[in-house]
Amino acid sequence: MKLKEIIDLLEGNLLCGKERLDDDLQSAFASDLMSDVLTVADSEILLITGLANIQTIRTSEMSDISHILLVRNKKATVEMLSLAIENGIALIESPYSMFRVCGILFNSGLKPVF
């Protein structure tokens, strides 16, 4: 599924990473626990999280994750945005809850990592 389709489905707002709108994603992982994210071997995933702090971006940088979705209107800080831009990461905000986001994306064909 293209990133731009994901954004449309979730009433998302892309904060940075416009060049990634046509990226084709096959799977997603949802967690607020960054140690859990660091155990995921796959890199070509959408990270769905309610954790909006600098370590969300650092964790993605270390895990080679290039697509992050912040749920439930969590707002990215200036520090987060700047680090996401530096690492070429697409950062999206959505008003939907994590459960709703996961349900919509699962029904639309995105696969779980585990």
Binding site: M34, S35, T39, Q55
Partner: peptide, 16 residues
Amino acid sequence: REMGFGAGMGLPNIKR
């Protein structure tokens, strides 16, 4: 824990 860590996964993850 607020930063997304502290779940007792760090050292085992380093070992892995």
